[in-house]
Simulated assay, not measured.
Amino acid sequence: MTSTLNMPKSELVKQSQQLMEKTQAAPTWSTREKLALTCRILFDAGHDSGLAGQITARASATDTYYTQQLGLGFDEISASNLLLVDQDLNRLEGEGMPNPANRFHTWVYREHPAVNCIIHTHPFYAATLSMLEEPLVVSHMDTCPLFDDCAFLGNWPGIPVGNEEGVLISQALGNKRTLLLAHHGLLVTGKSVEEALMLAHLIERAAKMQLTAMAAGAIQPIDPALAREAHGWISTEKRYQAFFSYYARRALRSHPDCLN
């Protein structure tokens, strides 16, 4: 005898979320390891652009964060070669130097204390969309975590190595989790590395879908109430963790040196 066929949608959603809390295990990798895995995952997803872009995460010590060493591509990052830097980009651990463009990460961390991970990349579709000076359009169920959650910076401030660019970018982000930067690329923030990874993956997919749809015709808007419902349904820590774990398993099959 079935017991759920007459249950309202709200109750089914609640029941599913409770079951996810019980059954979905959280990743056990350290922050360093998750950051290295994120670099490899996004490399495989087409987020590399030579040496452009930075992926950072807060470390345990106050006002410090992990970042890549300048000169290494995302496919070369491992847990052991990450740098630990302070807010002035002074190297505290590791070899080499950080990318000077990490300065705007410092501003985002200072202005948004709930943020624990920042992903800034120049993937092909998001970068191409940025050339049109058009905001991201979310009109598909899969990309609804970005609905009303992607800001747009229409004025390119030039290379982001000055404090002025840091102030501009951190302010443009506002209360959103993601940001499309005209003539530049994408910026994603998360309370966890897992959250940031999923949003970075989705924003590049959304940009690809938008450009493809624009070439075929006029994009039709999605119902805002349903989009907000999907935003909440997908935007949970357990969903982020499951997403991260799946892509981490894929990455480790191709990049077994990532966690050395």
Results as ranks from 00 to 15, higher is better:
residue 231 H to P: 06
residue 205 R to C: 00
residue 232 G to R: 05
residue 69 Q to N: 13
residue 43 F to V: 06
residue 254 S to Q: 15
residue 85 V to F: 04
residue 149 D to G: 09
residue 107 W to P: 02
residue 4 T to R: 12
residue 224 P to Y: 13
residue 257 D to R: 14
residue 187 L to C: 07
residue 146 L to N: 01
residue 158 G to E: 13
residue 119 I to M: 09
residue 108 V to K: 05
residue 76 E to P: 07
residue 158 G to A: 12
residue 45 A to H: 06
residue 253 R to Y: 06
residue 126 A to L: 00
residue 84 L to E: 13
residue 68 Q to T: 13
residue 89 L to N: 08
residue 151 A to W: 15
residue 111 E to R: 01
residue 75 D to S: 02
residue 258 C to H: 09
residue 120 H to M: 02
residue 38 T to F: 07
residue 114 A to Y: 12
residue 196 A to P: 08
residue 251 A to K: 11
residue 137 V to R: 14
residue 46 G to L: 01
residue 185 G to E: 04
residue 204 E to W: 03
residue 225 A to T: 09
residue 225 A to K: 11
residue 149 D to L: 09
residue 39 C to W: 04
residue 115 V to G: 06
residue 126 A to I: 00
residue 235 S to F: 08
residue 27 P to T: 10
residue 55 I to P: 12
residue 57 A to E: 08
residue 106 T to W: 08
residue 190 G to W: 07
residue 145 P to I: 04
residue 246 Y to F: 15
residue 78 S to Y: 12
residue 190 G to V: 08
residue 125 Y to S: 04
residue 129 L to K: 01
residue 240 Y to Q: 10
residue 74 F to K: 15
residue 241 Q to G: 07
residue 80 S to P: 05
residue 157 P to G: 11
residue 88 D to H: 13
residue 64 T to D: 05
residue 182 A to T: 12
residue 144 C to L: 03
residue 231 H to N: 01
residue 86 D to N: 11
residue 2 T to P: 15
residue 8 P to T: 00
residue 19 L to R: 15
residue 58 R to T: 12
residue 99 N to Y: 13
residue 62 T to W: 13
residue 82 L to W: 04
residue 212 T to K: 04
residue 82 L to E: 01
residue 1 M to D: 14
residue 134 E to T: 14
residue 106 T to M: 08
residue 183 H to M: 05
residue 258 C to K: 04
residue 247 Y to T: 06
residue 251 A to I: 10
residue 3 S to D: 10
residue 12 L to E: 08
residue 186 L to K: 06
residue 207 A to I: 01
residue 216 A to Y: 05
residue 106 T to L: 06
residue 141 M to A: 14
residue 66 Y to R: 07
residue 60 S to Y: 10
residue 58 R to S: 08
residue 45 A to M: 08
residue 118 I to R: 12
residue 84 L to K: 07
residue 130 S to N: 04
residue 240 Y to N: 12
residue 46 G to T: 02
residue 25 A to M: 03
residue 121 T to Y: 09
residue 216 A to P: 00
residue 175 N to E: 15
residue 142 D to N: 02
